[in-house]
Amino acid sequence: MSATLLAGAILASGVMIALAMACATLRLLRGPRAQDRVLALDALYVNGMLLLLVFGIRSGTTLYFEAALVIALLGFVATAALAKFLMRGEVIE
C-alpha cells in the first residue's frame, strides 16, 4: 500500500518536473533577449538535476546522485561564464 503510494508520488513528481522542463525549454526558445535564454538554461539544468534525483529514489541506486552533483557543479560554471560573456563580451580576458 505504502509502496504503491510512493510509486505514484514518484511518477507524479517525474511528470511535474518534466512539465517544468518543458516550460523552461519554451522560455529558452521564445525568450526575447539573451539574458532570458541564459536564465531559462539555468532553470532547465536545475530541473534536470531534480529529475535525476527522483529517478535515483525510484531505482534505489546512488549513481543518479553523482550525476546530479556533477550537473550542479558544472551548471554553476556554465551560467557564470555566460553571464560574464553577456557583461564583457568575452569569458577569459
Partner: peptide, 23 residues
C-alpha cells in the same frame, strides 16, 4: 514512505510553479 511521497510531491509542485512563473 508517506512523508517521502509528500515531500516529493511538494518539491515537484514548487519546481513546476517556478517554471510556470518563468514562462
Amino acid at each position: 514512505a508517506v512523508p517521502a511521497a509528500l515531500l516529493l510531491l511538494a518539491g515537484a509542485a514548487m519546481t513546476l510553479l517556478g517554471s510556470i512563473g518563468l514562462l
